[in-house]
Design a protein around this nucleic acid. Sequence first.
DNA 1: ATTATCTATAGATCTATAGATAATGC
DNA 2: ATTATCTATAGATCTATAGATAATGC
Lengths: 226, 226
Amino acid sequence: MSSTSDTGGGRRVGRPRATQRPDSGLSAREELLAAAAELFTTRGYAATTTRAVAERAGMRQATMYHYVAGKEDLLAALLESTVAPSLALAEKLLADGGRPAEDRLWELCRADVTLLCGGPYNLGALYVLPEVRAERFADFHRVRTALRSAYGELVAATGAGAALGADEARLRTDLVFGLIEGVILVHLSGPERAVGPFAAATADAALRIVGADREGRGPGAAVPGA
Amino acid sequence: MSSTSDTGGGRRVGRPRATQRPDSGLSAREELLAAAAELFTTRGYAATTTRAVAERAGMRQATMYHYVAGKEDLLAALLESTVAPSLALAEKLLADGGRPAEDRLWELCRADVTLLCGGPYNLGALYVLPEVRAERFADFHRVRTALRSAYGELVAATGAGAALGADEARLRTDLVFGLIEGVILVHLSGPERAVGPFAAATADAALRIVGADREGRGPGAAVPGA
DNA sequence: ATTATCTATAGATCTATAGATAATGC
DNA sequence: ATTATCTATAGATCTATAGATAATGC
């Protein structure tokens, strides 16, 4: 066990912190990430100072540099943590040729919406940050592009998708992808909605965009509430 | 004519600018807004300095304060310029009871996508800025909320919408609204696409989300390219 | 006289580093 | 000895204001 990452039972090595707090169970780096997630999404990335992040994580500003290289480091880690699980699921679903593409697409959509809206902060809003276009975040963009391709393959494997023609299929894939990430904005203005039914409804809507019919397929009702 | 806003034919009052440029035809305030639009969307709001905006508009940093109260002023003006024309159109369409709701909803969707993606900058991306939640931007939020209500009324007036039940209709309205604003993100990652067909395709997709069928109705083909 | 602009700058940050300090570990 | 943290701060901003300046207008 590395002493840096574990949260340690009793006494800890090193000078004690200036302001003690009850043990959160998170490592110092995790606390920094949680603090950054909250501050970046509520106050904005550029508007958040290293001091604000460190202080919220319970340490002094300079101490932060013991764990991360700087603000960009935190942002990159947060972005990848959002998109990586989606891609993992997408690849699992792509490999599972046994199930109808409609069902797999539906499941991917629902999982992504759950991920984007389910957490305590609206991390998806970070996607739009202009600073994210920088070369520094190329890794994140690669993963996101791969995720979009997975959507494209599932759409094409769909009955309706196969009938569409390449251009139209690409267009509908983009629209589905746009819908899924658009829930970020919906979620921004009404975060009180229950995530479960909302995610299912969004997945239904995605299939309607593709033109695929999935009456009663897969988990959950096709149109909950109707 | 106010001397501040017109671009003036010949000689202009006041000390000449340090660096002269060919007359753009825009007033000083408009040049500041254009500069802000570009810089806010490409580098980020908080990351853009007043100096950068002013310099890009062809004046020195301090001169900017002659025209605007500060950065927030610029952001508020940009946000309202994006959403105000949408609301104006929405109200016109709501009043026009003669046309089928499906057609009117389609037109509103297409117009909004055109507005969001048609300009030289991706102003829609500014919606997501955390700093926009501040009280300072309440006006913008009021207009945006009114726009969403207009979407809701059109959805409900639709044949499919009327059959849905209040909760489900509200949900689908939110999904449509999410799709429209989601194109901001789609546009971010592929700004090269032609806006016209894309806007029409998005409007088609919106009707599919609602459950409304509009084969061959209204302007343009229902499924361009198919 | 009026106007639009300029230069200069005070005051308030913010980041990242240097070096000191207070724990545990051996 | 090693580690995690602290305090202090140099250097680099950035915003908003004060006051000077160079045009036109009358």
